[in-house]
Design a protein around this nucleic acid. Structure first.
Lengths: 270, 270
DNA sequence: ACCTACGCTTCCATTCAGTGGAAGTTCTCG
DNA sequence: CGAGAACTTCCACTGAATGGAAGCGTAGGT
């Protein structure tokens, strides 16, 4: 993790003990399967797992067997391992994911039906927008987003909305780091971003264009819970056009309001 | 697990050692959160976890802390714990869940749009139908199914389809056990079930009525992968009516075929 | 305000489960 | 058929995990 004491350098003949707990080693094994970017789900051999988790082969062998017997990993005929169904089963039980998704899905479907565009549902998690749901239809502009993906806050519609309503220290911290530029039009100047956030708060809507994926634009709106707090964001991602389509904006607003109402938000002014 | 040597009986003053490995104990903690039936996602106190996992409090405390630091559990202000986002993130990466879902979703959306009924996608997992996806709309007859749920094979549309195309030893084993009767019309006689399975194979479609939930019926069809194997099933669940709606059946067939084709199935006769 | 009860957290001596190097096995490919 | 790679099993050693006990914090009762 820290990267400093993990090497087997140092003075003399130190052999660099690994002070991770059993639990940490078990987790390291699962983490070895975390898909790097927009990659397809991983499938690894025992040796590959050992390397990625930085564990001796025999230890890996034993711990992987524990995961398999529980169902967290599964072993395929060819000797490759992949994440197991048990993880999926438990994962979908996670309260935030499950409750939000269940409540929001009907409204996302409506939004998809009326617009026929990619529909996204995301929450703020750490420094990223975490995509809880994505509806796409057959056509589909190729996008990097997918369910479970983490994308930057400053270059996505949902991300900007989430940032706009985030506590100021989160904004502070986020803007303090170097914002990656994906396309020429990506806004990366902290002050310019702040200005946008203010506009978004004023409008209750974010518009993005050509900032993450070439040829695509997005419209996003905040979802509030009963306390009025913004807990998620919906968006549609469209092919970029010259004109703003007010119907699309309305549809996104309607979806966001629908979900908010279903969450118990009553448009308190507070 | 086995239930025999876990007690603290035996002769003399044995104190019954717990021979679970660290890994097994960690897993027992997660399993404590597995939602029992159609219950809402769990949230537990440390003590409750310790009881459910059958672990001493101090051990539970330490291991729970490990889960929390990794993100597999999260601790709320009130001191309650719940499954953490990390589990969700890894869970959605699980190959079967992710690939099948991603490919199938557009077709499920079509099916929902044309029928406006509950749409289900399920796979066979052990002795259960495991629900991978569920679309519902706002109206919604109350159903027990939900994403991640496990329901019996003999009393659900998707279940019967999956069983109809399962290897014969699976069918054998399944029918060898007592099949639960949920409603008067639930078919539980092994021979009657076998007869149904044959009909389903002949028709390529299953019809169920009033066998799991009062007032609801279902139509289900098999999804095949490129090898021709049935890997999943789609269904719609409707309010029970007197007449069969051929349009609905056609819609389910179309959806199932669409997904099969997208999976690479080419209608080989084999 | 005080007390009791309950649930959580920390501590630490004991011990046994986990460790990992090495040897054995299986599979693959030239 | 032989070399190499990947996986599996073995087992003596040891330090990490264990869990009882004591300490802390808070809620509720009187």
């Amino acid at each position: 993790m820290s990267g400093k004491p993990a090497q087997k350098r140092s003075s003399g003949d130190e052999v660099a003990v690994d002070d991770r707990s059993v639990a940490a080693r078990l987790f390291a094994i699962l983490d070895a399967f975390a898909a790097p970017a927009g990659a397809t789900s991983l499938t690894l051999t025992l040796t590959a797992i050992a390397q990625r988790a930085n564990l001796p082969l025999s230890t890996t062998h034993r711990l992987v067997a524990e995961w398999v017997s529980w169902g967290g990993l599964s072993k395929h005929e060819n000797g490759q391992y992949s994440l197991g169904m048990k993880l999926w089963e438990l994962g979908v039980q996670t309260p935030t994911a499950r409750n939000l998704r269940t409540i929001a899905l009907p409204y996302l479907e409506d939004l998809y039906e009326t617009t026929r565009e990619h529909v996204h549902l995301a929450i703020l998690d750490g420094r990223d927008a975490l995509y809880l749901e994505k509806l796409s239809g057959h056509h589909a502009v190729r996008l990097i987003s997918r369910v479970g993906a983490r994308l930057p806050l400053h270059s996505t519609g949902v991300g900007l909305v989430l940032l706009a309503y985030a506590p100021s220290d989160v904004v502070q911290q986020y803007l303090a780091t170097n914002l990656q530029r994906f396309l020429p039009r990506t806004v990366t100047e902290p002050e310019a971003v702040r200005k946008r956030l203010a506009e978004i708060r004023l409008l209750g809507l974010a518009r993005m264009s050509e900032e993450m994926t070439a040829g695509s634009s997005s419209i996003a709106a905040p979802i509030r819970d009963r306390t009025g707090q913004v807990v998620a964001a919906v968006s549609i991602v469209t092919r970029t056009t010259d004109t703003i389509d007010p119907e699309q904006e309305r549809a996104v607003r309607v979806a966001a309001q629908g979900v908010s109402r279903a969450l118990g938000y009553r448009r308190a002014q507070q």
